[in-house]
Computed example of a mutant assay.
Amino acid sequence: MATKAVNIESIEKAFGEPWATTRKRLEDAGGASAIHKELADALYPQFEGVVDKHGWWVQGAVVAYEQEIGRRVPGQRADGTFDVAVSRTIAGQRSDLVAALASHVDGTLNGTALKGEPRTSETAKRSFWRANLEDGTKIEIAAETKSEDKSLVVITASKLPSPEALEDWRAFLKGFLPQI
Score class of each variant (00 low, 15 high):
100 A>E: 14
144 E>H: 08
116 G>A: 04
99 A>V: 09
163 P>L: 07
115 K>Y: 00
117 E>P: 00
90 I>C: 06
116 G>D: 06
132 N>Y: 05
142 A>E: 07
90 I>E: 13
151 S>A: 15
94 R>F: 01
134 E>N: 05
167 E>S: 14
148 E>F: 12
158 S>G: 14
158 S>H: 04
140 E>I: 04
121 S>K: 11
111 G>A: 09
113 A>K: 09
161 P>K: 08
106 D>F: 00
161 P>R: 05
167 E>P: 03
132 N>F: 02
101 L>T: 08
111 G>T: 05
136 G>Q: 00
96 D>C: 09
105 V>C: 06
91 A>W: 01
147 S>V: 13
148 E>T: 15
161 P>F: 04
92 G>C: 05
90 I>H: 07
112 T>P: 01
118 P>G: 04
91 A>I: 05
157 A>M: 06
118 P>F: 00
152 L>T: 13
126 R>Y: 14
115 K>C: 00
126 R>A: 14
157 A>P: 00
148 E>C: 08
159 K>A: 14
104 H>D: 06
99 A>N: 11
121 S>N: 11
166 L>H: 01
104 H>G: 03
149 D>M: 11
112 T>W: 07
90 I>V: 15
144 E>C: 09
163 P>F: 03
167 E>R: 13
106 D>H: 02
119 R>K: 12
158 S>K: 14
100 A>R: 14
156 T>R: 09
151 S>R: 13
108 T>M: 04
101 L>R: 07
114 L>R: 07
152 L>E: 14
98 V>Q: 02
107 G>L: 11
152 L>F: 08
94 R>E: 06
101 L>F: 03
156 T>S: 03
137 T>F: 02
116 G>E: 08
151 S>F: 14
164 E>R: 15
159 K>P: 03
96 D>K: 15
162 S>C: 07
95 S>Q: 04
141 I>M: 12
137 T>M: 12
151 S>G: 12
145 T>F: 03
156 T>C: 04
127 S>G: 06
114 L>S: 02
141 I>F: 11
111 G>W: 09
113 A>Q: 06
99 A>D: 13
119 R>W: 06
135 D>A: 07
135 D>N: 12
112 T>M: 13
130 R>N: 14
148 E>R: 15
98 V>W: 05
111 G>C: 10
160 L>F: 04
96 D>P: 09
156 T>Y: 00
154 V>F: 11
137 T>P: 08
100 A>L: 12
107 G>H: 12
136 G>D: 00
91 A>T: 12
157 A>Q: 00
167 E>N: 13
120 T>H: 08
133 L>Y: 03
152 L>N: 14
98 V>N: 04
140 E>H: 01
154 V>K: 14
92 G>Y: 01
117 E>R: 04
161 P>Y: 02
143 A>P: 08
149 D>R: 13
156 T>L: 11
124 A>K: 15
123 T>P: 12
158 S>T: 15
106 D>M: 05
103 S>F: 02
124 A>S: 05
89 T>N: 15
135 D>E: 02
127 S>I: 03
99 A>T: 13
102 A>N: 08
138 K>I: 08
132 N>S: 09
